[in-house]
Structure formats: structure tokens, C-alpha cells
Design a protein around this nucleic acid. Sequence first.
DNA 1: GTCTATACAGGGATAGAC
DNA 2: GTCTATCCCTGTATAGAC
Lengths: 214, 214
Amino acid sequence: MTTDAGPPRPVTRIQREKQEVILEAALDVFSQFGFRGSTIDQIAEAAGMSKPNLLYYFKSKEDIHAPLLERILDIWLDPLREMNDDGDPLAEIRSYIRRKLEMSRDFPRESRLFANEMLRGAPGFYEILHTDLKDLVDEKARLIKGWMAEGRLAVTDPYHLIFSIWATTQHYADFDIQVRAVLGPDRGGEGRFDDAARFLDQLFLSGLSPKKKA
Amino acid sequence: MTTDAGPPRPVTRIQREKQEVILEAALDVFSQFGFRGSTIDQIAEAAGMSKPNLLYYFKSKEDIHAPLLERILDIWLDPLREMNDDGDPLAEIRSYIRRKLEMSRDFPRESRLFANEMLRGAPGFYEILHTDLKDLVDEKARLIKGWMAEGRLAVTDPYHLIFSIWATTQHYADFDIQVRAVLGPDRGGEGRFDDAARFLDQLFLSGLSPKKKA
DNA sequence: GTCTATACAGGGATAGAC
DNA sequence: GTCTATCCCTGTATAGAC
């Protein structure tokens, strides 16, 4: 335990736990109202502590928001990273869709926080999108293009394919309120994710099955 | 011209024009930061007038926001209303996708304002979603189901089909910054909408073409 | 570590001069 | 109609007692 002469970062276990409580509460608030629309009071109340107490652990609003964003992009891209050349292309795509849909089901607040950032133009975040994200998507687009060249996948635009997978899966988190309003109480329950999974399987797999050359 | 003894609403032409300037500026701001994250100062500056002057035309922030939202839902659902039994089912679906994609291209701020409302749970808007929107979607879902029953369309879930069309088309407005960051300057220009149109045609039309019964 | 108190800027809205 | 000035509440952040 070397706590002496270290950087000003707190490191004790209890501090980490408090920080987690705050980040958890902040995720609730930021994901609904975005950075500017959220207040420290809201977060403090959601975290069950006073505002000055919260500011003892994070010295500014920005300092709470930034680590959430960082963490999220990482979690978010994990399913895409896992797509590789191991198995059948259609199975890989299907598996990717499944994982993304599960993330919308299990981490809707993360999805909405990310969406909020995109809506305001991702200030101070664009560089990461333009480098890390772009590199990853470029890599996977090449992989998909390879599959298409080999005749194992219908030929189409791999970038827009990836966009459409993002869009359709994240829709169930970001527009959850609309989805449930339209489906109603009967079909809008937890089963909506199973219905979505079935639909997306059909849409993408029949759309991507390689065409027989007559 | 009966302007006497009317309700307190201003009605002169110049007033309407000023109101339009304000609404236009407010759309810019609200679509980026959402209702709570936007300030009247921002809107006033974007509209090129002072804050008190703006508040002479709209007596509160909410009074600027509400008509924007109303107007948008109407515009937004117009393409869906136009889908009918006149032509070929696949052509109708294709036409709907086109129109929605054009709206993302031509009215991205409207799309983002709507998305911002969804993200915060659509307070005071849920009723409309649950009634007007649901009714319209129910109606169109029945239409689509009819086509499927007649064997003119592959059998699938019409609700999730509509969701997926919304999601994929609106993505190009709501996540525009991400789309352009990933595509880069070469493919991220205006041509991205044409590429998207081609891709979505292929995805949905091959996914929805009726299966021959062997 | 947590609290009360508070400084100070930002933001919604109004008063009243012009 | 438009402005300056202002009110008052909210919100970020800090000081300092406990």
C-alpha cells in the first residue's frame, strides 16, 4: 500500500465504491438529459448524497461525464471487435446483431448517453470517432468485403451495413419510449427484444445471403 | 380581415415573420442540446435579437419548444400516411424508405429534435405517441400484414419492420457526426445519402421479397 | 468525509424607459 | 417593438466548520 507521495488521485476502496455510486447515478441523469441538460443536484440526489459531498469525489461536472463516455465507447465497440474470420460470415453477422441487441436491452442508458453525445455533435469526441472508431470499422469493412469477394455474402456496402446494424439495434434503447408506446402493453414487454431479434435475423440474413448465379 | 376583438394572439404579417425567425433559430439550438440543455440566450443570439425581444414574441421557453414539436411529428409521419394499397407492396415500402431518407437529408434538425425528446422519455408527449402515432402504425401494420397474407411480401413482423425503417433512415440525421467520421471526407459527402439509399433498397427489398414456395 | 453556508455566474422572465 | 436594467431562482463550485 503505497499511498504516500502519490498523485492526488484518491485510491482507497471506499472511495472507489462512492465513485461508482456517483457514476451510476450520473449515468441515469446524463443519459436522459445530456451533459448540458443535467445538473449536479440531480446526480447528487440520485446518488443519495449532498452536492458538496459529490464534488468531493469529482471536482467538476465534466469530470463525472468524461469517464462515463470513455467507458461506454469501449463497451460499445466490443461486439464489433469480436467479429472475425473464424466462422461462417452469416453466422458472424448474426452473432454481431445479437450482441448489439442484447446491449440495447441490458445497457439502455449507455446507449442513450452515447446518442446524446452524437446529437450535440460529439464535441471533444470527434477525434476518437475519426481515428479509433474509423480504424476499427475500416478493418471490419475489409473483412466483410473479403467475404463478399469470396461469394460467401451478397455484395453490398459494408459501411452502410454496419450503420444499419447499429441503427436498428440501438433504436430499441434510444427510442424505447416510442417503441413501447406503439407496441402497447401486450407486445411492448420484455418480449419485444425477442421479436426484434427474430425480425432482424430475417431482414439481414435474407438480405445478405449470397445470390446463386442462376 | 377580422383583426378586432380577437384573442390576445398577435397576427400581423411582420409578427409571423419574426416568430418564424425565432422558431428557425430555436430548432438549431433545441436539436443540438435538447430542451433543458438549451438557453433562451442561445436562441436569441441565433435569431439575431435580444433576449427580452424574443420573449416579447414567445412568453416562455416552453412556448417556443411546443410548436416545434407539434409541427415535427406531423411532418415526420407524413410519409407513412402516404403508404397505401395503390401499387406494388415492394414499391410502396421502397418509396417509404426513400421519403424517410430524404427527410433525414433535408430536415436533420427536425430529426434530432425528435430524437432528443425520445431520449428524455417524451414527457407530455407520450399520450400522442400512444394514441395518434400508435393508431397510424396499427393501421399501416394491418395493411402490410394483408400484403403478407396475400403472398405479395415475405412474412415478417410489420411493427419491427417499420421500426427498422425509422431507425436506419433517421440514423443518417441523428448520428450524422459519427457517420461522417467513419466514412471520412471521401465518402462522407452528400453522396452518402445515395449510397445509403442503394444499400437500404437492397437490404429491405431482398429481405421482403416473397419466398417462392419451392 | 460530510455538512452548512456562501460566492458567483448563468439563465428565465419582467419592468419600464424610449 | 426594442432596448437597458433588474429580479430571482438555479446551478457550479468553494470555504470552512465539524
